[in-house]
Amino acid sequence: MASQGTKRSYEQMETDGERQNATEIRASVGKMIDGIGRFYIQMCTELKLSDYEGRLIQNSLTIERMVLSAFDERRNKYLEEHPSAGKDPKKTGGPIYKRVDRKWMRELVLYDKEEIRRIWRQANNGDDATAGLTHMMIWHSNLNDTTYQRTRALVRTGMDPRMCSLMQGSTLPRRSGAAGAAVKGVGTMVMELIRMIKRGINDRNFWRGENGRKTRSAYERMCNILKGKFQTAAQRAMMDQVRESRNPGNAEIEDLIFLARSALILRGSVAHKSCLPACVYGPAVASGYDFEKEGYSLVGIDPFKLLQNSQVYSLIRPNENPAHKSQLVWMACNSAAFEDLRVLSFIRGTKVSPRGKLSTRGVQIASNENMDAMESSTLELRSRYWAIRTRSGGNTNQQRASAGQISVQPAFSVQRNLPFDKPTIMAAFTGNTEGRTSDMRAEIIRMMEGAKPEEMSFQGRGVFELSDERAANPIVPSFDMSNEGSYFFGDNAEEYDN
């Protein structure tokens, strides 16, 4: 993207840094990872977990959730003011799984939030270390993106479920800051804005008074975040219109849905970061690795190297396929839920299948599930090659597409044709070009129609051997075009429920 120079890199967003050079960025990201790792080690000690239990991804998720809940100030305040039966607002906890007599047992633990905050700050040299908290939120978000298709949420806001490739980060909490905003897809931002506008339509006082002023500035800020994701002048001009509207209503909703559809071809720039579970960072720190000293990046080879040398386990339900569970977590670790499966298959070195073909449910185990038949197995999170994460949407291309997802959002900077089903997408653009945004709409449609099938995206960008740390010898991959490109292809993934 041309304006790259004016933006802070995501590592800076990730670490609240002012302008830093590459070495400083690597050190501050490393410091953040160190903090998460030290916190995780301490929690495993508190909970008396064995090494194996500490490497269980379900335990990692519970521990991450506990610290996120302990620092969720708004919710904590709300819980104190609106006490609900049987919930102690000062405590947080969740299921911890232990191996007892050759069987997995679930144990519900409860801790004072104050105590968890103390352990977290102690692991982070006394700081609140917001960057580390956001990092864990993005890992949870990436896992949700890989596990669930947001059909219901899309339909509720009037969008087409086939636009799911635009929904990265749709389950990120509001408090995820600049680093969170960077990884949100165009569809996620559109959905947040539509929800806001709908509230304004239904509630006369939404934009009024002292609160209304705050609401208005939040609305304009979200519009600017979305505008910054678009790469064409016409899309940005249309966002200006939406932002400046005196009284946002149905016309703005129409414009936003139009823009979301246009992003299936004229893709937005959305950041991709490899955020790993805390149970990967903990053992690495415990083994003596100093992330701050060595430096770390979320968008280069580092996460690949770390996963190459990590042992992570997962509980497996009786009829689940461990290899499929591994694929789910591998995609989440690489922030690749909406990437082209052919690119992923090449990088991973084994075939990556669409969601609907995987015999696996989510990673988390519900409290009512029976533990008797639970097994555990090693997650295979290694890769054959590594590639640089991208934040450009890439230019655009036609490809055989599917009944489910009709476009992709690249996660890796790797040369390819970008699949999208042009006739299906263009069919949504018939007729409606009147109104105050008509010239911009016409211009956007013209650009979409001009998108050429034979153009290559990320020209000359390749993948790298894991021994090639400096990215000196790019390998331009070859793809098996007979395979499906979309992950949520004609899909039956479970729906995400809060």
Rank of each mutant, 00 (worst) to 15 (best):
M1L: 11
K7H: 00
K7W: 02
R8L: 09
Y10C: 09
E11M: 11
E11K: 11
T15Y: 01
D16N: 09
G17T: 09
E18P: 13
A22S: 14
T23Q: 14
E24S: 05
I25L: 04
I25V: 14
R26K: 15
A27R: 15
V29K: 00
V29D: 12
V29P: 02
G30L: 01
M32H: 04
M32N: 15
I33W: 05
I33E: 08
R38N: 08
F39T: 06
I41N: 13
S50E: 12
D51I: 11
D51L: 12
Y52S: 12
Y52R: 04
E53K: 10
G54V: 05
R55H: 14
Q58I: 03
Q58Y: 11
S60I: 13
T62C: 11
I63Q: 06
E64W: 05
K77N: 12
Y78M: 00
P83C: 13
S84Q: 09
G86Y: 03
P89D: 02
K91D: 02
G93Y: 04
G94F: 06
R99A: 13
V100I: 08
K103P: 00
W104D: 05
M105A: 12
V109T: 12
V109I: 12
Y111I: 15
D112S: 09
E114I: 08
E115H: 12
R118T: 11
W120D: 07
W120K: 09
R121S: 14
R121N: 10
R121H: 12
N125L: 14
G126K: 13
G126T: 13
D128H: 15
A131L: 01
A131N: 11
G132Y: 07
T134A: 13
M136H: 02
M136K: 01
W139H: 12
L143S: 11
T146S: 15
R150Q: 05
R152M: 03
A153L: 07
R156Q: 12
T157E: 00
G158R: 01
D160A: 03
D160T: 07
P161W: 00
R162M: 07
C164A: 15
M167C: 07
M167I: 12
Q168Y: 04
S170M: 05
S170G: 12
S170P: 06
T171R: 01
R174M: 10
R175E: 04
R175D: 04
R175N: 05
R175A: 02
S176M: 04
G177P: 06
A179C: 10
A181V: 02
A182M: 05
K184P: 07
G185T: 03
G185Q: 10
G187N: 01
T188S: 15
V190G: 15
I194K: 08
M196D: 04
R199C: 09
I201E: 03
D203K: 12
N205M: 06
F206L: 11
G212S: 08
R213G: 03
S217V: 14
S217G: 02
A218H: 03
E220M: 10
E220V: 06
R221H: 04
M222Y: 15
N224G: 04
I225W: 08
L226Q: 12
A233S: 00
A234Q: 03
D240H: 13
Q241H: 05
Q241W: 04
E244H: 00
E244I: 08
R246T: 06
R246E: 02
N247T: 09
N250I: 09
E252L: 03
I253R: 02
I253S: 06
E254P: 07
D255E: 12
L256C: 15
L256N: 10
I257H: 07
F258D: 03
L259G: 13
L259K: 01
L259I: 14
A260Y: 04
A260I: 06
L264C: 07
L264P: 08
L266D: 03
L266S: 04
V270R: 07
A271E: 08
K273W: 06
K273M: 07
C275A: 14
L276S: 12
A278L: 11
C279Y: 12
V280T: 12
V285T: 08
A286E: 13
A286L: 12
G288K: 10
G288V: 07
E294Y: 02
G295M: 10
G295T: 08
Y296A: 14
S297K: 09
G300H: 05
I301C: 04
F304H: 05
N309F: 03
S310A: 15
V312G: 01
L315D: 11
L315K: 08
I316V: 13
R317W: 05
E320F: 08
A323G: 12
A323D: 00
A323Y: 07
A323T: 08
S326G: 10
V329Q: 05
W330T: 03
W330G: 05
M331Y: 08
A332H: 09
C333W: 06
N334E: 06
A337Y: 06
A337H: 05
F338C: 10
F338N: 12
F338E: 00
F338V: 09
E339I: 03
D340H: 13
L341Y: 10
F346E: 09
R348L: 07
G349K: 07
K351F: 14
V352G: 03
S353V: 11
P354K: 04
P354V: 09
R355M: 05
G356E: 10
K357R: 12
L358Q: 05
T360G: 05
G362N: 08
V363A: 14
V363F: 08
A366G: 14
S367A: 14
N368K: 14
E369T: 12
N370Q: 15
A373G: 05
A373Y: 06
E375F: 12
E375C: 14
T378M: 11
L381G: 08
S383N: 13
S383Q: 14
R384M: 05
R384W: 04
A387D: 07
R389I: 03
T390V: 05
R391V: 01
S392P: 03
G394V: 07
N395V: 02
T396S: 13
T396G: 05
Q398M: 07
Q398K: 15
A401F: 00
S402H: 15
S402E: 04
G404N: 03
Q405D: 01
V408P: 02
Q409A: 15
P410Y: 00
V414W: 00
Q415L: 14
N417D: 05
P419M: 12
P423S: 13
T424L: 15
T424A: 14
M426I: 15
A427T: 14
A427D: 01
A427M: 15
T433N: 02
T433D: 07
E434C: 09
E434A: 13
T437C: 14
T437A: 13
T437Q: 03
M440F: 13
M440C: 07
R441A: 07
A442G: 12
I444K: 05
I445L: 07
R446P: 13
M447T: 12
M447C: 09
M448H: 06
E449H: 08
E449Y: 09
E449K: 10
K452Q: 11
P453M: 06
E455R: 11
M456D: 00
S457F: 01
S457Y: 01
F458P: 00
V463F: 03
F464K: 00
S467W: 01
D468R: 00
E469N: 08
E469G: 09
A471C: 03
P474Q: 02
V476M: 06
S478F: 13
F479V: 10
D480F: 12
S482N: 15
E484F: 04
Y487P: 02
F488G: 01
E494D: 11
E495N: 14
E495A: 00
Y496S: 05
D497K: 02
D497C: 09
N498T: 14
N498H: 09
